[in-house]
Amino acid sequence: MNDRQLEALIYLSRCGTFKEAARSLYHDSDENEYVTPEALQYRIRALEEELGISLYKKRQGTSRVTLTREGHLFLNEAITIHQRMQRWRSMFAESTRGKLSFAATELVIMHRLPEPVRLFHERLPQIELVVKAASPENIEAKVRSGEVDFGLATHPPEGDDLEYVVWKRSGFVVITPRGHELTRMEKPALQDLVHFPLIVLLPDPSRSDDRARVDAAFRRAEVNHTPNIVLETSNSELIKTFVEAGIGVGIVAETSVLTLRHEIDVVRMGDEFGQTEVGLLVREEKLITRAMREFLLLLSDTFEPWLEKRENGHRR
Rank of each mutant, 00 (worst) to 15 (best):
A78C: 08
Q41V: 03
N76L: 13
Q83E: 12
H72P: 00
D30F: 12
S29Q: 02
I81G: 01
E70P: 05
L73A: 14
E77R: 15
S54A: 13
N32C: 14
P37Y: 02
A46Q: 11
N76P: 06
E33L: 14
A39I: 02
E31M: 08
Y34D: 00
K58E: 15
I79R: 04
G52K: 07
R64E: 01
E49M: 08
T80A: 15
R59S: 07
A78Y: 06
L75E: 02
A46W: 01
Q41E: 05
T80E: 04
E48V: 02
R64C: 01
R64N: 01
H72I: 06
G61P: 12
N32S: 14
A78W: 03
V65I: 13
P37G: 02
N76M: 08
A46T: 01
E70L: 15
T62V: 10
T80P: 05
F74E: 09
A78I: 04
Y56P: 06
N76Y: 07
N32Y: 14
K58S: 12
G61Y: 04
I53R: 07
Q60D: 15
N76G: 12
G61F: 06
R43P: 12
P37M: 01
G52T: 03
T62S: 15
E77A: 13
A46H: 05
V35K: 07
V35M: 09
H27S: 07
E49N: 12
